[in-house]
Amino acid sequence: MTTCRYRGRALIRLKWDNVSKTTIILEPGDEAAQVAIGRCLAEALAYHGIVYLNGELGAGKTTLARGVLRALGHDGAVKSPTYTLVEPYDLETGRVYHFDLYRLGDPEELEFLGARDMLADRALTLVEWPVRGEGWLPAADVVITLSLMGQGRRLVLEAGSDHGVQALQRLAVSTRDIS
């Protein structure tokens, strides 16, 4: 099997697990590779689904979101919606909701934002700091845990639904160079 590559270097190591069904580990060497992974992920998800982005401050959650938005045709700035909690993007190829729940005081605040309607939409929804919305948020299709690893990052992608399993399988067998 050929794995997803960035500038000739394989980015994906597969770990198949009968319990979680699919886990993919990626180790992008730089920010550009992480943005490229976001592009591939958006395509593998067929531009819809719910993605949780876990990781400490500075791990690259918003960088990954930028790659997803680039795949959908957004060429403007992408900043973390830390203060607004959600940033909607209406693009020609689909709708994206980018949540950052870091400053969320209580998960019920999501109701006042109209998040229930957003999450029911057939959109691609990215949720940074999903633990802050625990008990209120629906289950994720893909859960991504980002961590610092030397000068680079480590991304562990886990499928949380059948849609997520299919997306990670498509990502794993991608043969194109994502540079």
Rank of each mutant, 00 (worst) to 15 (best):
S20W: 06
K15F: 09
L14S: 00
G67C: 02
Y83V: 12
V19M: 10
I24P: 00
K21F: 10
T84D: 02
L53M: 06
A46L: 13
W16N: 15
S80Y: 00
R66L: 06
R95W: 08
L41E: 12
L57C: 07
V35R: 15
G76K: 04
I12M: 09
G58M: 05
R9E: 08
C40S: 15
L53Y: 12
G8K: 06
A32Y: 12
A44Y: 05
V68T: 02
I12F: 08
H74F: 11
R95E: 10
L85Y: 09
D17E: 15
Y52R: 09
Q34T: 15
W16K: 13
T82K: 07
T93E: 10
G38M: 11
E27M: 07
A46I: 03
I12R: 09
A59R: 01
A36S: 13
I50Y: 00
A10P: 04
A32K: 13
K79S: 13
L64P: 00
T82E: 09
L57F: 12
G49C: 14
T63Y: 01
G94E: 11
D30T: 12
L11V: 10
D90G: 03
R13M: 04
L64S: 00
D17Q: 15
K61D: 04
D17W: 02
K61E: 03
R70G: 04
A44Q: 07
K61C: 09
R39E: 14
V86E: 02
H48C: 11
A10N: 08
L91F: 03
R70M: 08
N54P: 03
I12K: 09
K61R: 02
A10I: 02
T63V: 14
G94A: 04
R66H: 07
R13W: 08
H48T: 09
E31P: 08
L45D: 01
E27R: 13
C40E: 12
I50S: 02
D90C: 04
L26T: 03
K15I: 15
T62L: 08
H74G: 06
L91K: 01
G67N: 04
E43R: 03
L85W: 06
G58K: 09
Q34S: 14
L57K: 06
G94H: 06
Y83H: 10
A77H: 09
E31A: 10
K79F: 05
R95S: 12
G38L: 10
I25R: 14
A36N: 11
T23F: 10
G8M: 10
L72Y: 00
E87L: 10
T82M: 02
T84V: 14
T62V: 07
G49P: 11
G76N: 04
E92A: 15
S20T: 11
R39A: 12
R39W: 00
R66C: 03
N18Y: 11
E31D: 11
I12T: 11
